[in-house]
Structure formats: C-alpha cells, structure tokens
Amino acid sequence: MHGPASPGWLLVALCAAAGAYCLLRLRSRVEEQRRTAGAEALMAFGMAAMAVPATVFTPPGWAWPGYAAVFGGAALHTLRAGRAGRRHLHHLVGDAAMVYMAVAMAASPSGHAHGGTGVPVLTGALLLYFTGYVLLSGIRLVPVSGVSAIPAGALAWGDRPELVRACRLSMGIAMVAMLLTL
C-alpha cells in the first residue's frame, strides 16, 4: 500500500471523501442506508489511513495488527448480524481483504508485502473479485433512459442511489489500487 506519494495521496483523498459521505448517510431516513453506511465508512477511513505514503508517515509496528483486529472484528460483526445478501457478503470480503493486507504489511519490514516475483494466490483472487466488482459497479452507474423509480427531489442527496453506487465504485477502485501495490 505504500507506493509512490502522488497516487497514495489521491487514494487518501478518495477514501476520506467516500468515508465522509458514508458518515452523512448514517443520518438517512432510509433504514438500509443507515445499516450499510457505518461499515462502508469504517472501510473507507481504514483504506485512507493505510494509503498514506510511507515517505510522510510510517506506521509503528503495532498499527498493522491493530488494523487486522479492527477489520477482523468488523467481519465478525457482519457474520454475527446474520444478514444475508450480496452487500453484506461484499462487506465480509472487503473486511477479509483489509485483514489480509494488514497481516501482509505486518510481516514485511520493508513496507512491501512480498519480495518474490509474481502475485500471491490470495492477492490474485482478491484482485479478480474487486476488479469484477468495479466493472459491475461501473455498469450499474450507466443511467437507463426514461426510467425513474424515484421522483426528483424525493430523496435527500445523501440517499441518492447513484451517489451511493459512485461511492462504492470509488472504494472498489481504491481497493484494486491497494492490492496492486501489495
């Protein structure tokens, strides 16, 4: 995750903006928005913190196990909640990916998760998953002409489905970028 400074700062900004938007969604009147917004805010802010360039700040040794514990707890919370559905399965995969990246970074004193050639199998599998997720999310953003199930102005801007999809798409792109630098 600690690659060149410019892309790192772009990831920090993208993830922090997504996290701030997710925090605003916590105030929504729509229950499903509130239910998923907290998990998505945690993911976004966690990715923002992990993406800070190492030239600016190198986390202490205890930070990586801390990340693993936080996202392991988030995964357990998702499992314990017993919610079914694609969104919650995606949160579970995202939490597992964050645990994996934190453990890989903790095991690497140089700041790069693997020193050998090639891509580890789990990294490759996560890259395939998140790349597919990004492509599908991008397709879902394409508007369907003439179809509007929600009247204009009926929802607050924090409840707009297209903004939620764009936020999720940006977090998926950030996850792919972080996995590529792993």
Rank of each mutant, 00 (worst) to 15 (best):
M1T: 12
H2M: 05
H2R: 15
G3A: 04
P4W: 04
A5E: 13
A5C: 07
A5R: 11
P7G: 07
W9R: 15
W9N: 08
W9T: 06
A13I: 15
L14N: 07
L14H: 07
A18Q: 02
G19V: 10
Y21R: 14
L23I: 13
L24E: 11
L24K: 11
L26T: 15
L26P: 02
R27C: 15
S28T: 11
R29L: 02
R34A: 00
T36G: 10
A37L: 09
A39E: 10
A41H: 00
A41M: 05
L42S: 02
M43C: 07
G46P: 02
A49S: 15
A49N: 13
P53H: 01
P53K: 03
A54N: 02
T55M: 06
F57Y: 10
T58K: 12
P59R: 08
G61D: 14
G66E: 05
G66C: 15
A69W: 01
A69K: 12
V70W: 00
F71S: 00
G72N: 05
G73L: 09
A74T: 07
L76M: 04
L76Y: 03
H77Q: 04
T78Q: 14
T78R: 13
G82L: 00
R83S: 03
R83F: 03
G85T: 01
R87L: 08
D95M: 00
A96F: 04
A97Q: 00
M98R: 00
V103E: 00
A104P: 04
M105D: 03
A106W: 05
A107R: 01
S108L: 04
P109C: 07
P109F: 12
S110L: 10
G116K: 05
G118I: 09
V119A: 10
V119H: 12
V121F: 15
T123I: 11
T123G: 05
A125F: 13
A125G: 14
L126D: 00
L127K: 02
Y129L: 14
Y129I: 11
F130N: 09
F130T: 04
G132M: 12
Y133Q: 12
L135H: 05
L135M: 11
S137N: 08
S137M: 11
R140C: 10
R140G: 01
R140H: 10
L141I: 01
P143Q: 03
S145E: 15
S145I: 12
G146N: 11
S148H: 13
P151W: 06
G153F: 08
G153W: 06
G153K: 05
A154S: 02
A154Y: 10
L155E: 07
A156P: 03
W157V: 11
P161L: 06
R165G: 02
R165D: 07
A166S: 10
C167F: 04
M171E: 13
M171G: 08
M175T: 12
A177R: 03
A177F: 10
M178F: 04
L179V: 01
L180R: 02
L182N: 06
L182R: 07
